[in-house]
Computed example of a mutant assay.
Amino acid sequence: MSATTRITVTLPTEQVAELRKLTDNVSGYVAEAVARQIRHQLLGDDLRRHQEEQGAFADEELAEARAKIFGTADRAGHTDAA
């Protein structure tokens, strides 16, 4: 188990009420949300850096990435037409 640090956060009352409806492990839920946001931020930083160094992504590259992310590629590897 990884080390933890106790912190205090302030959230709108409505969010806390909805959060408690969703889980009895608020700390775990918030930790996963923070981890997801960190991954999102780091990925965005990596993508921006890549485009600064290599130029903008081509439409084909973006379509391939979306297919991988959203699982829209068929078994032969072709993407669904959008």
Rank of each mutant, 00 (worst) to 15 (best):
R39Y: 15
E60P: 00
S2A: 14
T4R: 04
D74H: 06
T10R: 05
Q41I: 01
R49W: 03
A76I: 05
I38W: 04
F70N: 01
E60S: 04
Y29S: 11
I7C: 06
H40P: 00
A82V: 09
V34Y: 06
A31T: 14
M1E: 06
M1F: 07
Q37W: 12
A31P: 05
P12L: 10
L42C: 04
S2N: 14
R36V: 10
A3Y: 08
E61F: 06
H40E: 07
Q15G: 11
S27N: 12
A82H: 10
G71P: 06
A33G: 14
S2K: 11
V26H: 04
T72Y: 12
A76M: 14
G44F: 08
G71T: 04
I69Q: 00
A56C: 02
N25F: 04
Q41E: 12
T79R: 09
H50G: 04
L62F: 03
A31W: 06
R75P: 02
D46K: 13
A35H: 12
E60Q: 02
L42D: 14
L19T: 12
G55D: 05
A35G: 11
S2F: 05
A76H: 11
N25R: 14
D59G: 01
R36N: 06
R66T: 01
L62S: 02
K21P: 03
D45N: 14
Q37E: 13
V16N: 03
D24R: 03
A56K: 02
T5K: 14
A58T: 15
R75V: 07
E14C: 04
E18C: 06
H40D: 02
E32L: 13
E53Y: 03
D24C: 03
G44A: 15
R39D: 15
I38P: 00
R49E: 08
A81K: 14
Y29D: 06
T23M: 14
